[in-house]
Computed example of a mutant assay.
Amino acid sequence: MGQKTRPTGFRVGIVEDWRSRWYASKREFGTLLVEDVKIRNFVKTRYGFAGIAKVEIERTRDHVNVNLHSARPGVIIGRKGQEIDRLKAELEELTGRRMEIKIVEVNNASKSAILVAEDIAQQLQKRGSFRRALKRQLDQVMEAGAYGVKIELAGRLGGAEMSRKEKGIRGSIPLSTLQRHVDYGHTTAKTAQGIIGIKVWVDRGNYSDEESNNGADAQAGQASKKPKRSHKR
């Protein structure tokens, strides 16, 4: 079962949090769900070059909080915050609700499955070799500290007449272990020969290990910000 299930959906509600966090009545649910899709599509279309890994949406009555996880936060914020103000105004016009946008930086883009998939898609659209792109990304993900990575390409690879699949694996991908953080992302590359599908799995280790590492990094950051005391004799 684990081989045929999306890893993030398999873990949602157990160790993964929902991407949209709000409650609504049966009458409003469909409208708000479509609104969430519109927000995500608008952000990905407008700022796809900023390396957006995830868009989280939280709602109150008429207030919407949007958390953008980006590998290049400076591009979205813009000079003196002008770009993020423009994005906020456009989303408010799109939805008719008050928006609050928060930018969360993605520290290591090579460990984000969707960003790896989008990078491969860009290389294929620029007529790059699919084998070279596949091998390069496998090496980069493992060098970034991942425990394992699997990349699967499907379509008219290399301009072949018949579509086929090409797969590359490094390390281990435990698809049925719920305590293991397996990040998953998929996208498509629109080439001259046709559309190529790209799927990426990245094993980032146990969730408990990630939380402890994040806590240690936060403590180290706070310690570095504390002023040093000068001892006078």
Results as ranks from 00 to 15, higher is better:
Gln193Glu: 15
Glu118Ser: 13
Val182Lys: 03
Asn67Tyr: 14
Arg180Pro: 05
Glu118Arg: 12
Asp85Pro: 05
Val64Met: 05
Thr177Phe: 08
Gly74Cys: 01
Glu83Gly: 02
Gly81Ala: 03
Leu178Ser: 07
Leu138Trp: 05
Leu157Ser: 01
Arg127Cys: 09
Arg127Thr: 06
Gly159Gln: 07
Arg156Glu: 14
Thr177Trp: 04
Gly185Cys: 09
Asp62Tyr: 07
Lys102Asp: 11
Glu105Asp: 13
Gln122Arg: 15
Gly158Ile: 03
Gly159Cys: 04
Lys167Gly: 10
Ser110Pro: 05
Arg132Glu: 14
Lys190Gln: 15
Met162Tyr: 15
Arg132Tyr: 08
Gly81Asn: 02
Gly74Phe: 00
Lys135His: 11
Asp62Val: 04
Glu100Val: 07
Gln179Val: 08
Gly171Glu: 06
Asp85Leu: 11
Leu175Met: 14
Lys165Phe: 07
Gly96Asp: 05
Gly145Ser: 04
Leu134Val: 00
Arg164Phe: 14
Glu92Ile: 08
Arg180Gln: 08
Ser112Cys: 14
Ala154Trp: 09
Arg86Asp: 14
Leu175Phe: 13
Leu178Trp: 03
Val116Phe: 00
Thr188Ser: 11
Pro174Gln: 09
Tyr184Ser: 11
Leu87Ser: 01
Ser70Asn: 04
Glu105Met: 09
Gly81Ser: 03
Pro174Ala: 08
Arg61Ser: 12
Gly128Asp: 04
Val182Cys: 09
Ala89Ile: 03
Ser129Asp: 11
Ala160Phe: 11
Lys150Pro: 11
Gly185Ala: 09
Lys199Thr: 15
Ala160Ile: 09
Arg98Ala: 10
Gly96Trp: 01
Gly78Arg: 02
Gly168Ile: 01
Lys199Asn: 14
Val104Lys: 15
Gly171Cys: 04
Arg98Ile: 07
Gly148Tyr: 00
Arg156Gln: 14
Thr177Pro: 08
Gly81Gln: 02
Lys80Glu: 13
Ala189Ser: 15
Lys111Arg: 13
Glu105His: 12
Gly168Cys: 03
Val106Asn: 05
Glu93Arg: 11
Ala144Glu: 01
His69Asp: 12
Lys150Leu: 12
Gly155Tyr: 00
Gly81His: 01
Ile196Cys: 10
Ile120Gln: 03
Arg59Leu: 06
Ile195His: 13
Ser112Pro: 09
Arg132Lys: 11
Met99Asn: 05
Arg86Pro: 02
Leu178Glu: 06
Val75Cys: 09
Val75Pro: 09
Ile76His: 00
Leu91Pro: 03
Glu152Ala: 10
Thr95Asp: 06
Glu118Gly: 10
Leu68Lys: 06
Arg180Thr: 13
Arg136Val: 05
Thr191Met: 04
Lys126Ile: 03
Ala113Phe: 01
Glu92Leu: 07
Gly159His: 05
Gly197Gln: 10
